[in-house]
Computed example of a mutant assay.
Amino acid sequence: MKAWSGMVWGLLKPKGFGDYWPDGEFSGWDEALKDYYKNEMPDEERAALGLEEHFFPSSVVRKFTMDLGPVKPRECPKEFHAVKAHNKLADLIGTENGVFAVSEVFKFLIEELEPGVHQFWPLKIIMPGGQLYPAPYYGIVIGRFLDSFVPEQCPDGIWLHKKNRSLALSTTKKDFLKMPLSRDVFQGAHLWRENRPNYPLLFLSDELRSRVSRANLRLTPIYQLKSV
């Protein structure tokens, strides 16, 4: 059995639109959310989201990027319409409102390491002219949020700490090497978000990163972080 390395990695957002972050929008999502709110959403869920009197789609969209519990199938977008044609999308792509989608191979790798932790649903990628992107993609909701970030061990000038949030002032590879995460907290996790820092977007274990590399998957830049 492979020894646990204790290394940890952060996934960054690409610069500009392209195969890693296609420009486009979800089709019919707002309308579907409004219909769900009007006809099906339980009263206790409305109260939890602060939607007792008025409906704001953004309140539900937050469930895809924040630790607000499971997302229901009726709340998931079904089609993403890209502005430009793409011949080979990356294996993890960003879409509208920060919702991520993954290829079938990456979905398999994630589920092999963390079965039942994250939510997936089929997401059609529609190219201009109505052409369906030929490979299957799946929307993903990260099901693990951790507090492994150790702000008191951060060097000055790299992070701005405000109450329960930390904002990255630098996004260089050199400075991310100084980003301290507690191995006692993230040990055993393979894919997660952090509650406190606003960046990187996602966090990966060394094991998941190694499997991504061996499978030659295309992901946005991944920087090594500091384990403490």
Rank of each mutant, 00 (worst) to 15 (best):
M1A: 14
W4L: 14
S5V: 05
W9E: 00
G10D: 00
L12N: 14
P14N: 08
K15I: 14
K15G: 15
D19F: 07
D19P: 10
Y20W: 09
P22Q: 14
D23H: 14
E25H: 14
F26T: 09
S27K: 13
G28Q: 11
G28E: 01
G28T: 06
W29K: 11
W29Q: 01
E31D: 02
D35A: 12
Y37F: 09
N39C: 05
N39T: 09
E44H: 11
E45T: 07
E45V: 04
A47Q: 14
A48G: 13
G50Q: 08
G50L: 08
L51P: 06
E52Y: 03
F56E: 15
V60P: 04
V60D: 02
R62Q: 15
R62C: 15
F64T: 03
E75Q: 13
C76M: 15
F80K: 03
F80R: 02
A82T: 12
A82Q: 13
N87Y: 15
L89C: 05
L89N: 09
A90N: 11
A90W: 04
A90Q: 08
L92E: 08
G94K: 07
E96I: 11
F100H: 10
V102R: 06
S103P: 10
V105D: 09
F106W: 03
F108E: 14
F108P: 08
E111L: 15
E114R: 01
V117A: 10
V117E: 06
H118Y: 15
H118W: 07
W121C: 06
P122F: 04
K124R: 13
I126A: 01
I126W: 02
I126K: 04
P128D: 02
P128A: 04
P128V: 04
G129D: 04
G129Q: 05
L132G: 08
P136A: 06
Y138T: 01
G139N: 02
I140Q: 06
G143P: 00
R144L: 09
D147V: 03
D147S: 03
S148M: 02
F149R: 12
V150Q: 11
Q153G: 07
Q153D: 13
W159L: 12
L160P: 11
K163D: 10
K163W: 08
S166W: 00
L167D: 14
A168K: 04
A168M: 07
L169I: 01
S170Q: 11
S170P: 07
T171Y: 08
T172E: 07
K178G: 09
K178E: 14
M179C: 13
M179Y: 12
P180T: 08
L181G: 05
L181V: 02
L181T: 01
D184V: 08
F186T: 00
Q187C: 10
G188R: 01
H190S: 05
R193G: 02
P197H: 08
N198R: 09
P200W: 09
D206C: 02
E207P: 06
L208N: 00
L208D: 00
R209I: 13
S210T: 15
S210P: 05
R211G: 03
V212F: 05
S213Q: 11
N216Q: 13
P221W: 02
K226P: 10
K226V: 03
K226Q: 14
K226G: 10
S227F: 04
V228P: 04
